[in-house]
Write a protein that binds this DNA or RNA. Structure first.
Lengths: 220, 220
DNA sequence: AAGTATTGTTAGATATATCTAACTTTTATA
DNA sequence: TATAAAAGTTAGATATATCTAACAATACTT
């Protein structure tokens, strides 16, 4: 049986080892930072997770998943993202309010619940933030790699997919000359509201996080 | 902040003090039985709940709620029953599978979630088992008193309300001559599947628990 | 390559929530 | 009413998950 706490560690590890840089390992301090805990606490838990064969790790070495551990982490992420989708699509929450609630809901234990929820939501592939929802078989929807909103200042990327396909949004993109295949450079990122200053075809535009959330991109 | 565990104790206390006999107090052993814990553990927790002013109780005395404690218990029950309603009405769970999942969901902390869920479900007054869902102001829908399925062998009661109003169910009741106001005597209760042998207008019928769940009755 | 900074580990303390075993009080009954 | 049964309490142990403070190993930097 995996405790809520253990699941939190596995999810955090997942965030670290699934980073854009393709790292397959992480360290004690990084985990502690992500979980807002002290390294000593993390170290304790690492021993426990290793004993349960959920992670590979040796003293002073780096941390990585076992297959079993990754499977559990993927399920937690799946549940988190399905619940976020539920909160936004069905209950009418705004996308910025759902995280804390989904953090709680992701620990509800019931395979049947997860599958029924998935069905109820229409088997969504991406959550309201544009993150891919891992499937029950452990696979992940092929993602063009990232959403524009996850890019950092200086990144250059290509638009691969538009999430919101409403007429209003597509018309807006048209005005900025953004299409699938368009190259976008991130000139600046405003930390206050996560809006981005981008360059497209030599012209600068400011786009909101909401807009950037709806644009899937890959590095180029 | 109230822990999940504390909520479990308050909910169990609620079940004891809101029993049909109208008791307003309960004992250590009764709580321990209900929670499948040892009396010593309960005693420990009682001290804590008293210190938090959630219950009234003195050494060797009986246990009862403070207003604050009752309010929390009611909220937990409200959440439990709303989630059960969600699981059955929206996700298509059968009524007998939802309890364990609702036991987990009832601890999710978010006032906004509860109110949005209530709205999403259409402000239901009764859960799939026919139990009244406490309202956010702490009031409880007036209940005809009980569902037929909660009656015991020898009880005599009057049908006050039909929960499932589908044509199929109403036609079924018609065949048994059961209407609102009909007097029903419970001749026997089959523990295997909780079906009831009832007498209506001098005739004996066997009704399933599902049927009995859908008939609200009051003692006569 | 030496010294320093970063990273990671250990030991021991704390808080929660449980248990067992022994004990005390209250209640029921002979 | 004396005694036995039931109900309730206490003390001390265990497990989980956290912390602080001190220590050890690795990595960076000059």
């Amino acid at each position: 049986m995996i405790s809520h706490t253990e699941e939190d560690y596995l999810k955090a590890l997942f965030r670290l080892v699934s980073g854009k840089q393709g790292k397959q390992e992480a360290g004690t301090n990084a985990l502690a930072d992500l979980l807002s805990l002290k390294p000593a606490s993390v170290n304790n838990m690492l021993k426990k997770l290793r004993k349960k064969e959920l992670i590979d790790y040796e003293k002073y070495g780096k941390i990585s998943f076992t297959d079993k551990g990754r499977q559990i982490a993927l399920l937690v992420v799946r549940k988190h993202r399905l619940w976020e989708t539920f909160l936004v699509d069905k209950l009418g929450f705004s996308w910025d309010r759902v995280h804390d609630i989904a953090e709680q809901l992701e620990h509800i234990r019931s395979d049947e619940l997860v599958e029924k929820l998935d069905w109820f939501l229409g088997h969504p592939e991406y959550d309201p933030h544009g993150d891919p929802i891992p499937r029950s078989d452990g696979s992940t929807p092929t993602t063009p790699s990232a959403v524009l909103s996850s890019m950092q200042k200086g990144d250059v990327c290509k638009v691969m997919m538009v999430k919101d396909t409403s007429a209003a949004f597509l018309q807006y993109l048209e005005r900025l000359s953004i299409h699938v295949g368009t190259c976008v450079s991130v000139m600046d990122k405003v930390s206050f509201d996560n809006s981005l200053v981008i360059e497209v075809d030599g012209k600068h535009h400011t786009v909101s996080q909401k807009v950037a959330d709806n644009l899937y991109v890959s590095y180029c």
